[in-house]
Amino acid sequence: MSVNSLLRVCDLTIGYGKGNQALPLATQLHFELKAGQLVSLIGPNGVGKSTLLRTLCGIQPALSGSIFWEDKPLEEWTAEQRARKLALVLTDKIPKSNLTVYELIALGRHPYTNWLGQLAPDDIKAIETAMEQTEVSLWRDRKHYELSDGQLQRVLIARALAQDTPWIVLDEPTTHLDLVHKVGVFQLLQRVAHQTGKCILFSTHDIDLAIQLSDEMLIMTPQQLVLDQPCNHIESGIFNTLFTDEHIRFDAEKGRFVIS
């Protein structure tokens, strides 16, 4: 295990347990994530991407195997300690409330504030930095429900950045966005990973963009889970095993899927 390992997964089985009948989605998963990397998780619908992310984050228990955050097993971290290590951007709909963009981002400082949630100068600095990085400062006084999907996604990313954690997990952050906003979010995540040394893991269906912009790709098929650099994935030909449909083929030279 290397020094800067943030997440290590050993012989992990994920899925849903119903009484004695466990329904495993994927078994024997092994991989390790390091700081300063943008890692994308791709795979067909229903293969268990969300379940994997939820399990890694501790939202959902693993069926078997072990997950290490840094060098400590996930179960040994308290909820408060976890909140200082991992920030999330989920697909959950945010209920309509009076929260402004600034207040929503400020909620990211919860793990550091007192019982009333009062912001100290350090907190305000972290919020401002997060807003600058994501370029959302202009909307600071807008209500969160007034934002477009693309704007809200940037604000949610800002909230995760304000939480000031060494790693961030995003569940399909580019769904519902147009191409410009998709690329914007990808570039933002790449910039943050490289500039701040955070590890950013996200699931996506935008495989073409993920190939171009991520440092490592975690490819999940019903048979296996492989972590490698995008160019190595292309060489190995794993993309052709991703979808069972014979009309969809991966063109290694163009680096994208074509329909034949």
Binding site: L86, D92, L107, H110, W115, L116
Partner: peptide
């Protein structure tokens, strides 16, 4: 009064609240 911070966190839904360290 003891729940004020948890209530603020719950404005984002339960999963976000939990990710903010709220029991």
């Amino acid at each position: 009064l003891q729940s004020i911070k948890a209530l603020d966190g719950l404005l984002l839904g339960e999963n976000y609240a939990a990710s903010l360290g709220i029991a």
